Measured scan of single mutants.
Amino acid sequence: MAEQVALSRTQVCGILREELFQGDAFHQSDTHIFIIMGASGDLAKKKIYPTIWWLFRDGLLPENTFIVGYARSRLTVADIRKQSEPFFKATPEEKLKLEDFFARNSYVAGQYDDAASYQRLNSHMNALHLGSQANRLFYLALPPTVYEAVTKNIHESCMSQIGWNRIIVEKPFGRDLQSSDRLSNHISSLFREDQIYRIDHYLGKEMVQNLMVLRFANRIFGPIWNRDNIACVILTFKEPFGTEGRGGYFDEFGIIRDVMQNHLLQMLCLVAMEKPASTNSDDVRDEKVKVLKCISEVQANNVVLGQYVGNPDGEGEATKGYLDDPTVPRGSTTATFAAVVLYVENERWDGVPFILRCGKALNERKAEVRLQFHDVAGDIFHQQCKRNELVIRVQPNEAVYTKMMTKKPGMFFNPEESELDLTYGNRYKNVKLPDAYERLILDVFCGSQMHFVRSDELREAWRIFTPLLHQIELEKPKPIPYIYGSRGPTEADELMKRVGFQYEGTYKWVNP
């Protein structure tokens, strides 16, 4: 592979701008107003304001973009700056750019259920340069409990009458099928589907988006991507930290609602779906819905739930269990780990287990898709061969690698495990991989909904998990304890083995 010439960040961002501006969906010269509902909250200060700053800094926003914060707290732009700027990672050389960014910011205080507050917000936006005809993007960085009041008031008082209007809704989209349907029906009564952007930030990850290209742009994968060759698929999300004093919020939802029903299920769809007619948003989402419709409700015998306990040999936070978090209700049975087996009941995947695993306070930070292939028929190497695996590593250190057998150097035919490896950090030294939120917010500006969740996708996802969630809430089974920093409950490994996964433990990928 030829040595790549190092590029400056300015040059890299210039390439990104060229890609972005050559499309006809990006209205570079139009006025846009980006409204952050819930501007005083954690999500706004840690993710949304920093993301908008990065896009502005790199010249990736339309030229005439204004940012308006809205929340109940009586704040000023200076207050917003004070709480969000520490997350910007701005350099001293960017000081003038930073001043320009905050000059485009404003803030309006108001209630979430008060019509007069929204009329005041609308008047404020109209007073901005060309504000009355601007395109408006409303980001709901809010708890779902206020979605209905907020969307109703936005629709009645704050819509642009000339430009387009788009609304970005953060997960969780309800707690179960019934609450999700209620919320979807409410929002759909106010906005068209092409105006609604239900954001799952995992769909903005580079390697998640790469799944489609790997599958449908490489001839070698087509013939082997089926039940005849693939023994099982494992989708993993692991965090090495616990709730760390923020367990009160987590306890309301648990690990299945927080990660599995959305992030992991979306990745499953991209692995299992048929080739779409095109890369058009609805063509892709149509195929994802077909996959979900082929999955039956989760069966309790295919589920393992766990909850982390303190590690007596650990240090600091590792010595504390979930129930030691003062914000967690006493005696909570909320799971911090889950392993679930699903089956896609169609011709391509009949009988292939899709194993979804996620948890907190585990032994490493990792998100990946792992396809394990069947054993080689007619073994001539005296059971020395391990199964081939194709691994798409989402985070950290984005990579695609194939675990395969090669001859060990020497005189004899002794096979050993090795890999074919594409590590993004080595291959793409001159490429700026956008943060997931950067990519998705740019998608909203461009009107691309491919990486957002459609209402029928959402409904099918909740259909699969709601009976299990209701059973857990009714019966309150005690989750299996696992030690902070471990791989999780051993019962999860036993479940995976029972459905056909072979864990060798003899080879570990190392970032080159």
Rank of each mutant, 00 (worst) to 15 (best):
K89G: 12
L98K: 05
E252P: 12
P223K: 08
S179W: 02
A90S: 13
F138Q: 03
V233M: 06
S73G: 06
R182G: 13
R246I: 01
D176Q: 04
P143F: 02
Y197L: 00
K171M: 02
T31F: 09
F87C: 07
L61G: 03
A78R: 13
Y112E: 00
T76L: 08
R198A: 04
D200W: 03
I48S: 02
V233K: 02
E244V: 13
R175H: 13
Y249P: 03
A109R: 11
K82C: 10
T31C: 12
L137R: 02
T151L: 09
S84M: 10
P50S: 08
T51F: 06
I196P: 03
L137F: 11
Q11M: 10
A103C: 14
H186R: 13
L211I: 13
V208K: 03
I162E: 15
L137M: 12
N122G: 12
I224W: 04
H201P: 01
R57A: 08
R9F: 15
R9G: 10
G110C: 09
S189Y: 10
E244Y: 11
G38I: 03
G69S: 06
H27R: 15
M207W: 04
K47V: 01
Y139T: 06
F88M: 15
V150Y: 04
I167V: 13
I187H: 08
I48E: 02
A141C: 09
E193I: 03
T243D: 00
F191K: 03
N122C: 14
W164V: 09
K171P: 03
A103F: 10
I15L: 09
E94F: 05
N218C: 01
T65P: 06
A44V: 05
L130S: 15
I234H: 15
K97Q: 14
D30R: 14
R9D: 15
H124Q: 12
G245V: 01
L60T: 02
W225R: 02
L75D: 06
G41S: 00
I234W: 04
L121M: 10
S73N: 06
E156I: 15
A103S: 15
V150R: 03
D79R: 08
W53M: 00
G59R: 09
K171S: 01
E156D: 14
I220W: 12
Y139S: 07
F221M: 14
E93D: 13
R219N: 08
F21M: 15
H201K: 01
R182W: 09
L75N: 10
Y49P: 01
R182C: 12
Q209C: 08
F216V: 03
K97I: 14
L16N: 15
L203W: 00
L121R: 01
N229Q: 13
C158E: 05
I224N: 09
S84D: 05
R246F: 05
Q83A: 12
S188R: 09
I162N: 13
C158N: 12
N105C: 13
Q22R: 12
A103G: 11
F88P: 00
A25G: 15
G222E: 14
D58E: 12
E156V: 12
T65H: 04
K238Y: 00
A115F: 15
F173H: 04
F66L: 12
N126Q: 12
H186A: 13
Q111D: 12
I230Q: 00
F237Q: 07
P172M: 01
Y107M: 09
P92S: 13
T76H: 10
Q83P: 05
Q22I: 15
K82W: 10
L96Y: 14
F101K: 03
W53Y: 11
E85S: 09
F253N: 10
K46R: 13
A71R: 04
S8L: 04
I199W: 03
Q209M: 05
I255P: 05
S106G: 09
E19N: 15
A141N: 04
S132C: 14
I230W: 00
R74G: 14
L183N: 01
Y197I: 02
F237K: 04
G41D: 02
K152Q: 13
L128M: 14
V77I: 14
D79I: 06
L203S: 01
N185E: 11
I224H: 06
T236Y: 06
D181V: 06
R136T: 11
G247S: 06
F253V: 05
V169E: 00
V12S: 15
K95A: 14
D228M: 10
A44R: 04
D176R: 04
N185G: 12
R9P: 06
R72W: 01
F191W: 09
W164I: 09
E170P: 01
L214S: 06
G254H: 01
V169C: 06
P92K: 09
K95V: 08
D228E: 14
L203R: 00
E252V: 10
Y49V: 05
A217M: 06
L121P: 02
I48P: 04
A134H: 15
E239M: 04
I187D: 00
L16D: 15
T151A: 11
A109P: 11
R17V: 13
R136L: 05
R182Q: 15
K47S: 01
P92T: 13
G174C: 01
E252I: 09
T10H: 09
Q111E: 13
I162W: 14
S188K: 12
D194R: 10
P143D: 03
I67N: 00
S157L: 10
F241S: 04
D30Q: 13
M37L: 09
W54M: 09
S160T: 11
Q178N: 13
V12E: 09
N105W: 11
M212A: 04
A116S: 12
R192H: 11
K47G: 00
A90V: 14
H27A: 13
F138G: 02
A141V: 00
D58C: 10
N218A: 04
L43A: 01
R215H: 00
Q133V: 12
I67S: 01
L190T: 10
I224A: 08
S40E: 05
L98V: 14
H155T: 08
V233Y: 02
K152F: 13
H32A: 07
I162A: 12
R175T: 06
V77M: 14
D79L: 06
Y118C: 06
P50Y: 00
N126A: 12
A217C: 10
I33E: 06
I154Q: 02
M212S: 01
I15C: 07
E148F: 08
I255L: 07
I196H: 01
E148W: 12
I162P: 13
Y139D: 05
R136A: 10
R136H: 12
C232V: 06
I220R: 01
Q209H: 05
I255T: 05
Y112I: 02
C232A: 14
Y107N: 03
R57M: 04
S180N: 10
P240G: 10
G38P: 02
M207D: 00
R227A: 09
N126D: 14
K97C: 08
I36L: 05
E156F: 11
V233W: 01
